[in-house]
Write a protein that binds this DNA or RNA. Structure first.
Lengths: 203, 203
DNA sequence: CTAAAATTTGGCCATGCGGTCAGAAATTCT
DNA sequence: AGAATTTCTGACCGCATGGCCAAATTTTAG
């Protein structure tokens, strides 16, 4: 038994490596068979370890799932925000956001599939979604700032920025899900088309 | 034991009523607690009957779920298609589709919540989604016809109708999910705003 | 080298699941 | 009425799940 709970920063390298290995296995199992089939036994088997190891390194299945979400979410947020740093106008920001997310998708299909599965399926003890629309609030306000900037500078017409943010976010998710089901679909072309579409919608 | 399997049209009124009662109970249980908590036991308890009755009237849980989907889907399709009958131009059709779906949502929140749960969660024996993006093909082609009409008449600009259809569909779904999580949100206003947004996107 | 601590194993547990069934109850038929 | 059929009940089955733990093993510390 680990003698005490340590803050994240004080975990040993070995422990951190094991946790990362388990998280990676969880992502692959979830993406391959869906959330419902991603049992601790299945994840452990895929990682080549005993089931108890997961219980040893994570407080429970819920903590494991939240760590999976955190890791994936941090990765994409960092990439997209970085790529948007250089842009000035709201139009540039809008197009860059869409294209940069799409660019991330191609290299992280499995991770984003797992993320979607957990978002749609993970529930708290009361049966309410752990993630879901309400946990997208941060993303919505971020997109709202983008559209509000465009309205302030006169680039964009007048419209409801909340509806626009919700729609924008849904359009991105749909692009990904469509591409997952139809791998031959041209993701880049879809992204460019979507950027055109959103730009046209607000001008 | 029922002596034989009869075609749908030859089921007795009593049996049809029981099936409808069970389907209604299933919808309420799924909407209230999510797909994962909607066990046969929970559905039976909510309907005030024994669990075995469900097995007696349905071949299994999967058949029950498909009947739930069929009933809900038929209801909404009929309403929306009917409301679009009177319209002529692609712009009118577009706006009517969005507003009529939103109108349906307010009176059928529970049913559509259950529909979404089943769509996102029901899997076949191999673990692949029973419904999902690929089962939206019919809806996509229907929306594509609408947009293609607008392009042919010159109402709409040139764009990829498949990307537009996928985005349109996702925007509708997102509007519903956002409203479910934020019941105080003005659904009608959102629908009008979305219709403006889509119209602006294609003109 | 030895003792202590950390890590892993493999089996066990209670719980809940979908599905089944014999017999009871209700309904329909003659 | 009584017999035949349909419907319902409540208990039961095999199975999978997440979590747990004593003992075995490996790593670290003195």
């Amino acid at each position: 038994m680990r003698s005490e709970i340590l803050p994240t920063g004080q975990r040993s390298f070995i422990e951190e490596a094991r946790r990362a290995q388990i998280i990676a296995a969880a992502i692959e199992v979830i993406a391959a068979g869906g959330f419902a089939k991603a049992s601790l036994a299945a994840i452990a088997k895929h990682a080549g370890i005993s089931k108890g190891v997961i219980s040893y390194h994570f407080a429970g299945k819920d903590e494991l799932m939240e760590e999976v979400v955190n890791q994936i979410y941090d990765t994409i947020a960092e990439r997209v925000l970085t790529s948007m740093k250089g842009q000035e106008t709201a139009t540039e920001l809008l197009r860059t956001q869409v294209l940069s997310v799409a660019g991330h998708m191609r290299g992280h299909r499995t991770q984003l599939q797992a993320l979607g599965e957990i978002f749609h399926n993970l529930r708290d003890a009361a049966g309410k979604p752990r993630y879901g629309v309400q946990s997208s609030e941060e993303l919505y306000t971020s997109l709202e700032r983008l559209y509000e900037l465009g309205q302030r500078t006169g680039e964009f017409r007048s419209f409801d920025i909340r509806v626009m943010a919700v729609t924008h976010s849904a359009a991105i998710d749909a692009m990904f899900e469509y591409w997952v089901v139809h791998p031959e679909h041209d993701l880049d072309a879809h992204a460019i088309e979507l950027a055109d579409l959103l730009e046209s919608a607000v001008k």
